[in-house]
Computed example of a mutant assay.
Amino acid sequence: MNNNDTINDGLLVKYLMKEANAEEVQQVETWLRESKENQQYLNGLQLIWEESASLAEGSEEEESAAWTKLEHRLNLNTPVVQKRKSFNNSWLRIAAAILLIGGLGWFASYYFHNPALLTVQSHADIVHKVLPDGSEITLNKNSEIIYSSVFRGKDRPVKLTGEAFFKVTPDKEKPFVITVNEIAVKVVGTSFNVKNRNNKTIVVVETGIVQVSRGNKTVELHAGEQSTIDKDQTRLSKEKTHSKLYNYYRTNELECEHTPLQELVDILNEIHHKNIVISTNALKNKEITADFKNQSLEEIIQVIKETFKIRVEYKNQQILLK
């Protein structure tokens, strides 16, 4: 299936299920770094895997038979009894569901060659996309989504890299689920922004209710709330949204309402590819209320300067606010 003889789908599935040993993890991650196509292939396989989970309704006998097929097909080279002990019930149910409908190889082939998995990449543009269920997605620059041309199973899975604003068509019977790294964002119909940059994920809810999960932890966000999750932290935060800065790539407007200056500076650095630095923590936390629309970076910095009565120093590719 993939473009490297040393990596097979069985190993990739073990990696996705976090059942691979240290040597296998290193092998897969080395393969992923070799090309963007390898990462895209793994993303597609993960989406197939997640969507197949909703089909896992078989009996124990069916699971046992399916596991035997899986072990043979993926060449796991481990006795069935030992493997059953090391893999959890979720693994067995999903493996059984996949193989009972014809095997992982057939299932992946069906999705990839129809094609059923679609990838949208924004590159240097802002991209608007309508999904098969009518949900609308606006991709920020340098972002990517992967989704099925037809949403099967019990949910509507989408995989995100980068940043996107979602306006989800309501369907209480089939939740909309976005995965970004190890985080899942689940909704039935609402609008919200998801951003993953620099090992940090931020979910901002504009309307409705959004459920954010990581591992066995979950937080429920309502309109006007957000959650910020660092890659290395286990806690899921929940706080009020300070501004509508997350909307800048959709509206070309920077809306600040009692917004900490550091948040505005972070967005300005992202938009203009600059290195604006605030010299003190006290200044970072000062709040600004202002709307900027179609104004240059120099004009915005001038407003900041006058608002807080500070100095601006341009030095060594850096703009220092002090």
Rank of each mutant, 00 (worst) to 15 (best):
N140Y: 05
N142T: 12
A124C: 03
L131R: 02
D133S: 15
V127W: 00
I145T: 05
K159A: 12
S148T: 06
D155H: 07
G134Y: 13
S148A: 08
D155C: 03
E163I: 11
K154L: 07
I146S: 11
V127D: 01
K129H: 13
S149T: 15
S135N: 01
P157D: 04
V127G: 00
I137Y: 07
S135Y: 04
T138H: 04
V130W: 13
G153C: 07
D155N: 13
T138G: 00
V130M: 13
K141L: 09
N140K: 07
G153V: 02
E144I: 01
K129A: 05
V130E: 13
H128I: 00
E163Y: 10
S143T: 02
G162K: 11
I126L: 10
T169I: 06
T138V: 14
F151A: 06
N140P: 08
L131S: 10
Y147K: 02
D133M: 13
I126R: 13
E136T: 14
L139W: 11
I146A: 05
P132N: 10
F165K: 11
T138F: 01
G162V: 15
T169A: 14
G162I: 10
F151W: 02
K129G: 03
F151Q: 03
T169H: 06
K129P: 08
L131N: 10
F165D: 14
L160S: 10
A164F: 07
Y147Q: 02
F166Q: 05
K129R: 12
G153M: 03
K154V: 02
T169C: 11
R156C: 03
T161K: 13
K141W: 06
S143V: 07
D155W: 09
E144Y: 01
F151I: 06
G162A: 14
T161S: 12
S143N: 02
K154R: 10
V168Y: 05
T138I: 12
L139D: 03
F165L: 15
R152S: 05
I145R: 03
E136M: 08
F165M: 15
S148G: 04
R152T: 07
K141T: 15
T138C: 09
R152V: 06
K141A: 11
L160K: 08
V127I: 10
F151G: 05
V158G: 11
V168P: 02
I126Y: 11
K159Y: 14
K167L: 14
P132H: 09
A164V: 09
R152L: 09
V130R: 12
G153N: 02
E144N: 04
F165Y: 15
E144G: 01
A164P: 09
K167Q: 15
N140M: 04
S143L: 03
D155M: 11
D133E: 12
N142C: 09
E136C: 09
K129W: 03
A124I: 00
I145S: 04
V158L: 15
L139M: 08
V158D: 12
I145H: 08
G134Q: 13
V168L: 03
F166G: 05
H123D: 11
I126G: 08
D125P: 04
P132Y: 07
S135T: 12
K159F: 14
G134W: 09
D125K: 14
E136A: 15
K167F: 10
I145Y: 02
T161E: 13
G134N: 14
V127N: 03
I146Y: 09
I145A: 06
E163C: 14
I146F: 11
L160N: 06
Y147M: 03
A124K: 12
I137E: 01
